[in-house]
């Protein structure tokens, strides 16, 4: 396979200046060097205290808050000319915000970008972890809207910071217990809280809990940036990340009774595509790179039978691939 094939050149010739030249009047990768240094120091502190949210002097970015400014600031402070950047949103490289952020860095830093997970040195993501296993020396940067896992139980910052300091996580376990008592299970499908290195409860960002197990002992460095909330936190490589649960109610992930209609994958996270007014559906991989790679290798799914009613089998876990 030609490794270069999917890397997009910084000197694109087609689109006049929009994609091709580094923006004038701005520093490399937008932020000034002092700011980048401040952010890197924050990252070092975050890596040293896994799962602990470190406040930092988050800057205004030219994208709105809530659209990835935290992740972008981390990326901007780490990126160098030799990096290859991948940006995904909902698992896909070609969703509008991913395109926009990727273009921002090709404009301001002139870096190479890719859609292939294994080619990337930096991966900025919103709401997913790629299906492809990340390896050492890769860095995955999560965009985080609400870094505080206790926020929706206790909205006051002063209170939750004290709870973290004292490792006083009773309210979280009570909340999970109440979910089970009321609904029969923990009613958290994404942004499912984890315990990092046996010490801090951390928000994994709004990734589906399907992705939570990938965080555990991941060889890549995981960085989390929350721009509006001005927090950075980290999970160093090979760190234990445990999704919160109880002995009699162990953590489990969502499963589909179906496989990807495009590549036939039976182990990936699926998006539901509604095909017509009657609600016929197909399920396809959310991770577009993973799906394309499988299709290139000759794997095929079954598109002939759209589903009328999506049945789930969260407890059984067996997929029947047509």
């Amino acid at each position: 396979m030609n490794r270069q094939s999917n890397i997009q050149s910084k000197a694109g010739t087609k689109n006049s200046c929009i994609d091709s030249c580094i923006m004038e009047g701005y520093n490399y990768a937008y932020l000034d060097e002092q700011t980048k240094r401040m952010i890197r120091r924050t990252i070092l502190k975050a890596v040293a205290i896994p799962g602990h949210q470190v406040p930092f002097g988050s800057r205004e970015m030219p994208l709105p808050y809530g659209w990835g400014t935290g992740g972008m600031q981390i990326t901007a402070s780490l990126i160098g000319s030799k990096d290859i950047l991948k940006v995904i949103d909902q698992g896909a490289d070609d969703t509008t915000n991913a395109v926009s952020i990727r273009r921002f860095f090709s404009r301001t830093a002139g870096v190479l970008t890719t859609t292939r997970t294994q080619e990337a040195t930096l991966i900025q993501t919103r709401h997913r972890i790629p299906e492809t296993h990340l390896i050492k020396d890769q860095i995955i940067i999560y965009q985080v809207p609400i870094p505080e896992p206790l926020r929706f139980i206790e909205p006051r910052d002063k209170e939750v910071r004290r709870m973290h300091a004292l490792k006083e996580y009773g309210i979280m376990y009570v909340k999970l217990y109440e979910d089970i008592a009321r609904h029969g299970r923990i009613a958290k499908a994404f942004d499912y809280p984890v315990l990092v290195n046996g010490r801090y409860i951390m928000s994994p960002s709004p990734i589906p809990k399907f992705d939570n197990p990938k965080m555990n002992r991941m060889p890549a460095l995981q960085l989390f940036g929350a721009g509006r909330e001005k927090r950075i936190y980290a999970v160093p490589p090979y760190t234990e990340v445990k999704s919160l649960d109880f002995d009699d109610y162990p953590f489990e992930v969502e499963r589909w009774p179906l496989c990807c209609a495009l590549c036939g994958s039976d182990s990936s996270y699926l998006d539901e595509i509604i095909l017509d007014d009657k609600g016929s559906k197909l399920f396809v991989c959310s991770d577009t790179d993973h799906c394309n790679k499988r299709v290139d290798k000759g794997y095929r799914g079954n598109q002939e039978k759209p589903v009328q009613e999506a049945k789930t089998c969260i407890r059984t876990g067996e997929r029947k691939c047509a």
Partner: peptide, 25 residues
């Protein structure tokens, strides 16, 4: 404004996760 309007960004991964949960429920 940024945070309110970020709801315009795609959320289908999270919505899918909630859909699975709600269908079960």
């Amino acid at each position: 404004a940024g945070f309110v309007e970020h709801l315009k960004l795609p959320h289908y991964v999270d919505f899918q996760a909630d859909l699975v949960l709600m269908r079960n429920r």
